[in-house]
């Protein structure tokens, strides 16, 4: 099933800088896509556009068949809350809240689950990422790899169909980075989500089921397997 479609998506800044141009992309559920490319090639820009954090200057992004170009900011926010999950290079956990509370934030904001169910869900997510014993710790009490796993748990909080990660392993050592990529592979494979990961690391990119290579804001290659 096609989850995400980008149709000739182009993003230009007012100063005339082109971040990405003419991106055509279809991503199905279960796909684990690595986005690669040299520094400054527009990988982050593309991810923000596909993640509905930014709007294209031309072209459109469809999520689960819905055209997002016409949606107002609150509707986009609602989609981000319920259908998308973000992981960034920096973990961006709220420092004054425990790992558990950080994961609970999107669940509580969505407000579908009762408090007890929400907590059970957050705990099971943390448990699945090997953090069951660290749920009550503050971010500053966790290691870099653990924080990034908490951030992944938070991105998965509302069971998104599409997970977007921008160099999530940039601050991690090889062992932790490999672990994170294994998690992504599992998420795509077992739950039928689509996972899009920006990475610099060619070895890690080969763990993905598909590699999209960007140069100067354009897709120059798109290989599977």
């Amino acid at each position: 099933m096609t989850l995400l479609v980008a149709e000739s998506v182009t993003k230009r800044l007012a100063e005339g800088v082109t971040l990405v141009s003419d991106i055509d992309l279809r991503v199905d559920g279960g796909e684990f896509v690595a986005i690669t490319g040299p520094s400054g090639s527009g990988k982050s820009s593309l991810l923000y556009l596909l993640g509905l954090l930014d709007r294209p200057t031309s072209g459109r992004v469809l999520l689960e068949g819905q055209d997002t170009a016409s949606l107002a900011p609150p509707a986009l926010a609602a989609l981000r809350l319920a259908r998308l999950g973000f992981v960034f290079q920096f973990h961006f956990l709220l420092p004054e809240f425990s790992a558990l509370d950080n994961v609970l934030i999107p669940i509580r904001r969505r407000g579908v689950l009762k408090p007890a169910e929400a907590e059970a869900r957050a705990m099971s997510l943390l448990g699945a990422l090997g953090l069951a014993d660290d749920a009550r710790k503050l971010p500053e009490q966790l290691s870099g790899g653990m924080r990034q796993r908490v951030a992944i748990a938070r991105a998965l909080a509302n069971d998104p169909v599409l997970l977007l990660a921008d160099e999530p392993t940039g601050n991690l050592d090889t062992k932790n980075a490999a672990a994170v990529f294994d998690i992504f592979a599992r998420l795509a494979q077992e739950d039928g989500r689509a996972v899009l990961v920006v990475t610099h690391d060619a070895d890690l990119a080969h763990r993905a089921t598909r590699r999209v290579h960007l140069v100067d804001g354009r897709i120059v290659s798109d290989e599977r397997g």
């Binding site: 926010a77 809350l81 998308l84 934030i105």
Partner: peptide
């Protein structure tokens, strides 16, 4: 600002 950015990316609206 970082926390604001992450909250927004998580789906918090401007109103929130």
């Amino acid at each position: 600002t970082r926390d604001i950015a992450i909250l927004k990316s998580l789906g918090f609206t401007e109103g929130d």
